[in-house]
Design a protein around this nucleic acid. Structure first.
Lengths: 307, 307
DNA sequence: CATAACTATGAATATAATTCATGGTGTTAT
DNA sequence: ATAACACCATGAATTATATTCATAGTTATG
């Protein structure tokens, strides 16, 4: 008999396209999923997946079950939100502080979803730039911080979100575009176009250029699109998350290059106070954030050490 | 983590109002359900049921989960019908022969549901009265027979539907109404109002009156309402299923009395040829029939010895 | 008041899911 | 080519979990 477990697996399979990735998502081994699928196929006496070399394809019956899974999982989540409301009927607030400007891009739709899910929770953005956003948490001026800091601290919990690559962004035909990979020295005397934040908060500078003793120039812009405009107009080069620039790269508006042999990677965390971490709506925010990020953002990698 | 199993249990609980009855429905012991509920309550840290003496009441959170269960179970069933279609994409036919006239009353809505579920299956009623409906099955003139016959036969499967009580129906103020229970002798020289079928097919006659050697008169009518009209007009008395007359009794249109100390009971079966029994749409017909009967008909009892 | 009917519960059992260990197969890179 | 790798399937072992069994407590019923 089919169970939610199977539906959750099928759903993950649909989203990841591979058994082993799906297994991570549902916190099981690849073997477990393989067995699950086998059981389902025997139960319905129908093939659910077809193997195309390595890639896994869903058959028509498989797709039908995935469709079921999507509907059912949504219903279950909605019901569980209501269950959470029963145990804790107060309103609560979720004031979000953002360390990373680009994150606005994906945060907006998530906030929309959240507002639908938890109309009684006051949702707010803590505006302006903050040198030490974690302090906002401690001082109770924000309820969650989205940033890359994960230094363990008493009273603070860092929930891993995802890992992403920061790419150098160049105008098409830029001299440096000839290289597949850029190294610190390549940035010498270039103009960097960055968000208006302190240098130490820009990974390219703090992790790559400063250690190598490279000299550069800098110019700032508030918005991702503005930065891309400047890059395309050959005013300089930028370093941005791969998912933030994907569509521009696909349309040959700019080109992107890896920074350093293994790439320049950054981790994103959702940090909260310990008390806040247990709140059902915070849990829900985390789940929907991961969910939406992994489905909408290209090339991001799950972070280990889940709570 | 919640599973479909739990939802099926909650759904059964909702419909039966008792753990032990619900347990029968889902083919588990009462203990199993008790444990399941306990697990769910611990998982959500919320009470799902409240005990009012023997009766079990759902709490608000409990009701919310039942609501989820109803939605989800419907979705799952729809998906499983589609799965069945994948394995056996041909049309098929379901020609129904009815032994018991009153059954029209509950069969109609079930046929409507079936038509929605299986538009590609030809649904038909085998009309007219048939002395030996099982022969219709064997001769391939019907695909299922709804009746009380359950004599084991090679090539025929009798799927139990439910057990119901046949009550004597009298006009209000009728002389016999003074007794709580009617016995064979009470029917002496009364006029029985029955469907126009052979005497041996009328349980009251074959099981009660004939064995006791009672003499009676008889008059027939085609429709249940017509029979009730005649009874109310003091033209005679009838013997009808409790669920067929419930609303008339409730409105004091007629009165009903038990026949014999333990009542006169009859069992209803859905009989098919062996090959037909395995067809997915036949299985679905059985499930929806039982489901709808148990939710809409009052006072019917599940039959043991399920397949 | 005795009996029946229903539920809760801890312990025992049965069942089923998951992991482990491994082998097979297709993909990629040197 | 072919080694190295990544991904999946599978049987056996293991673990986890659901269910039953046995029983006691409670409420209804005659």
């Amino acid at each position: 008999m089919i169970e939610l477990r199977h539906l959750r697996t099928l759903h993950a399979l649909q989203e990841t396209g591979s058994l082993s990735l799906a297994a991570e998502r549902v916190h099981l081994t690849q073997s477990a999923l393989s067995h699950q699928i086998k059981v389902l196929q025997e139960y319905y006496k129908l093939p659910l997946i077809r193997r195309q070399g390595h890639a896994i394809q869903l058959t028509e019956p498989g797709k039908r079950l995935v469709q079921l899974a999507e509907k059912v999982i949504k219903e279950v989540q909605a019901a569980e939100r209501d269950m959470a409301r029963f145990s804790q009927p107060t309103g609560g607030s979720l004031r979000i502080a953002l360390e990373c400007h680009t994150c606005f891009d994906w945060l907006m739709p998530i906030m929309d979803t959240f507002r639908e899910h938890w109309p009684e929770v006051e949702l707010d953005l803590v505006s302006g730039f903050h040198a030490d956003p974690i302090r906002l948490l401690k001082q109770g001026e924000a309820d969650i911080v989205i940033g890359s800091e994960n230094k363990p601290q008493r009273s603070i919990v860092h929930h891993p979100l995802f890992r992403f690559e920061i790419l150098a962004v160049l105008a098409p035909g830029h001299e440096l575009g000839k290289k597949r990979v850029l190294h610190a020295a390549d940035f010498a005397n270039q103009t960097l176009i960055t968000y208006p934040v302190p240098e130490e908060r820009i990974d390219l500078i703090s992790h790559v250029l400063t250690p190598a003793g490279i000299v550069w120039q800098r110019r700032t812009a508030e918005l991702t699109i503005a930065i891309l405009q400047l890059v395309a107009s050959r005013r300089g080069i930028a370093a941005l998350p791969n998912w933030g620039i994907k569509s521009y790269v696909d349309h040959d508006y700019v080109i992107a290059r890896r920074i350093g042999t293994h790439g320049l990677w950054s981790d994103l965390f959702v940090s909260t106070r310990k008390e806040t971490a247990a709140l059902p709506y915070l849990q829900d925010f985390l789940i929907t954030s991961r969910d939406q990020c992994f489905t909408t953002l290209d090339g991001i990698v799950p972070l280990r050490a889940d709570e």
